[in-house]
Amino acid sequence: MTLYTIMPLENVLDGLNGEQEPSQEVWVNGVFMQVLPVAPGMGKIVRLIHCGLDDYLKPELAPGSFVMFGQPPVS
């Protein structure tokens, strides 16, 4: 990897060797994705792993968006 950036590298790479937050791979509405759990049943999308081509155009599936996964509570 070669970084070509105006940002000082010590700022960009600070914490690179630190512990990565544990991510989880889940299916949400037919899309297999990697998420960072933020609360039970809720996660922030890291990347889409398996999905249709047009799913990449959906803003709600962009990395950084929040998704609900898992079974909804039975009322």
Partner: peptide, 11 residues
């Protein structure tokens, strides 16, 4: 930052 093969730290 345009992120490449290595995931950059969260800042």
């Amino acid at each position: 930052q345009v992120e490449g093969h290595i995931v950059l730290p969260p800042q």
